[in-house]
Design a protein around this nucleic acid. Structure first.
Lengths: 136, 136
DNA sequence: AAAAGCAGTATACATTTCATAGCGATATTT
DNA sequence: AAATATCGCTATGAAATGTATACTGCTTTT
């Protein structure tokens, strides 16, 4: 819903370079529409949102409630967590189950698509041990 | 560290609120210091920064210059790209080679640690094809 | 009887990312 | 020959995103 309908190079073209038609020439299918149709780009955009990987990692241990999750991911603030959980649900990665409304009790758990993300996380984990050097 | 014993089936067995007795003060080693010592957390924090995965993905195709990279990742703004490249260099993921200062010519390329991230990206890619449903 | 926990929402502030202009020198286009 | 585009950034201010904190009404724990 934002300015994402712009083509990547439109940005560069807008910046005072009106005649830069040369720049626009080479665009891979994936990049051409900001990944609107490319699953890989969509996935990166999703997983790269703050807290998302931590949320998934935490839910791999089992279903959790809102505040429980909040603590275990490392202190995400409630507005952000709420928004992230919404989009994860829309994307079919988690399901939300309202066990009781008052007092409130909710449970979030991974779908099979969500569980499948374990491979990604294990890969990150393995990489981090072998190659990541600590921040200075 | 604990977060690595990920058990897919645990999900099925656990109902919500399994650890409610730990509400206030339970901090695992990993979480306790914001992941200061846990490689996995550090890695997620790094890879989750905006543009980082796109940068790595793009450099897997070969070394690139600043503006070239900027275009190919999908239009990252220069200040942000500059900052990301700095941290990626500090973390040992890319190397920066200044070929000429005036006129400027620089080349960014992955280190072996950077190339090793290909596994992560391939895993995301595979996952996205099989499980990610498009944003509504 | 008091305190703390549940799942969020609302508000106001802090941080991050953004678009854009600009640099001097060459390479390309007209 | 002259105008323009390009290189790799940095600087600026504005927009978008993330933050801490307070709050709700009801139950469980102390």
């Amino acid at each position: 819903m934002k300015a994402l309908e712009l083509q990547p190079n439109a940005i560069l073209e807008q910046t005072a370079f009106k005649n830069s038609h040369l720049e626009t020439a080479h665009l891979e299918p994936c990049e051409s529409a900001h990944g609107a149709m490319c699953p890989a780009i969509q996935a990166i955009e999703l997983l790269q949102e703050k807290w998302v990987l931590f949320i998934v990692r935490s839910l791999l241990e089992g279903a959790k409630g809102f505040n429980e999750l909040r603590r275990e991911v490392g202190g995400c603030n409630p507005s952000t967590l709420s928004e992230r959980l919404d989009t994860l649900e829309k994307r079919g990665i988690i399901t939300k189950t309202v066990c009781s409304t008052m007092p409130p009790r909710t449970s979030y758990q991974l779908t099979s698509a969500g569980v499948a993300l374990q491979n990604v996380i294990l890969e990150i984990d393995a990489w981090s041990r072998q190659h990541l050097k600590p921040a200075s």
